[in-house]
Amino acid sequence: MTANDGGSTGQQNRPLRADAQRNEDRLLKAAAAAFAREGANASVKDIAREAGVGVGTLYRRFPSKELLIEATYRHEVEILCKAAPELAASLPPGEALRTWMGRFIDFMATKHGMADALRVVLTDDGEQLQTRARLAAAVSHLLATGNDQSAVRPQVKAHDVLMALGGISVMTDTERRPDLAAPLIDLLLHGILTS
């Protein structure tokens, strides 16, 4: 999440300088990796070190760990939603869907790592519904591109795809088997693609 797209860090409408934006992007990328790996207990010092910035830089941008978690979540949603049209434009429909689905599973792993903290931070049901709607729109874009090329079965609905991906995410997390994601995504794609 950048400072000019509605974040909650108190600097919402001011664009960041290029170097500050790079620092924020690195911090959010490092935070997503750390939260996926270690959950909400990930060390802020380790996140700053992984991002190549000082802890002071992290705290100037995100004065609390809760704000870092919230910004990381929103940033990951933004990346995932923006990826759909980019993938649809650059890859064949099946590959675009497969790549996006893999990224969705990675997003869910990050979200699972932050789940307890997110329950406290994201108390607005409207925001959760908005996130689901944005993700469904991303899937719809990929499906529509596939339909245009007769590569996707016309009856496939974005909401159903998201529900199936959610199930895959839960299974891989519950079984502690991230290696299950790829074959299950392939199985899901078998039901989506026309060939």
Rank of each mutant, 00 (worst) to 15 (best):
L122E: 15
A32H: 04
A117E: 12
A71L: 07
R103A: 12
K111F: 00
M163Q: 14
M114E: 14
G7P: 03
L91A: 07
R49G: 02
L122F: 08
L189I: 05
G54C: 04
T9L: 10
L135D: 07
E70F: 05
S43N: 11
G39F: 10
I105H: 08
V120N: 04
I47W: 01
E38K: 04
K111T: 05
V156G: 05
I69P: 03
P63G: 10
G52N: 10
A117P: 00
R60C: 09
S150E: 14
L67M: 15
V77L: 15
H159W: 00
A84M: 03
K111E: 14
K45G: 08
G146I: 00
G52W: 13
G191A: 14
R103K: 09
Q155T: 13
R22Y: 05
F35S: 01
T99Q: 10
V161H: 01
S195W: 10
A18I: 14
H75N: 13
G126F: 02
T172R: 03
R177D: 06
D19W: 11
R132H: 06
Q130M: 12
A96L: 04
G94C: 04
L67Y: 01
Q12K: 06
L80D: 05
L187I: 02
R177Y: 04
A51I: 04
I185Y: 05
V139L: 04
H112C: 11
P154E: 11
E38S: 11
H141L: 09
T99I: 02
D116H: 07
M108P: 09
P93Y: 09
N4V: 00
R134H: 12
R26F: 08
L143A: 04
T110I: 05
G191P: 02
A33R: 09
A33Q: 08
V161D: 00
L80R: 12
R17N: 06
L142D: 11
L67I: 14
A36T: 06
L97P: 12
N13A: 13
V121G: 01
R176F: 09
A18C: 10
D116W: 01
A31V: 01
I69M: 09
G56V: 03
L188V: 07
S43A: 09
G126Q: 09
T172S: 14
T9A: 03
S8W: 07
T194Q: 09
A18P: 10
G146P: 07
R132D: 06
R176H: 12
A109H: 13
F104Y: 15
A158Q: 02
V53D: 13
G126S: 08
P92S: 13
R103Y: 03
L187M: 10
Q149D: 11
A3H: 14
A138H: 08
F104S: 08
E66S: 12
S64A: 05
Q155V: 11
D46V: 02
D179F: 01
C81R: 04
D179L: 08
L165D: 00
I79V: 12
P15T: 01
D160I: 02
D25V: 11
A88I: 02
R14E: 10
D5A: 05
